[in-house]
Amino acid sequence: MSDLTTVAMTDYLVALLVLIGASFMLIGSWGLVKLPDFFTRLHAPTKASTLGIGATLIGSLIWFSVQQGSVHIHELVISIFLFLTAPVSAYMMGKAALHRHRPMITGTKNVKLAEKAARREGLKKPD
């Protein structure tokens, strides 16, 4: 801890980042409850949660870096990992739901495209 003003600055910054992260996570989970069908729900957690986690992790990265006086990059590994895996798990869950023919809310545009995509062959195990 070197300078009083920098400490106060990082305090505000860390508090802000942590709160932003938590509110994004809250909104994402609220979307999970509120949105009408599976495919719209798929958007909520995969997006809001990655930024929520990202902001929280950057907050704690700054906090520990200032506290210990050295750069503390562990947290960055977790965020990078989550940013890499979030689209993959979203893709896999979306694909599973598509081939299980989950219903979509009325008013969804181009439902025919989804039906066409769901007819894709080669998913069943070869006997």
């Binding site: 996570m25 909520a44 949660s49 990655t50 929520g52 986690i53």
Partner: peptide, 10 residues
């Protein structure tokens, strides 16, 4: 499964 995914991120 989607809820579990979000739960572990939280």
């Amino acid at each position: 499964v989607l809820a579990l995914d979000t739960l572990y991120i939280n």
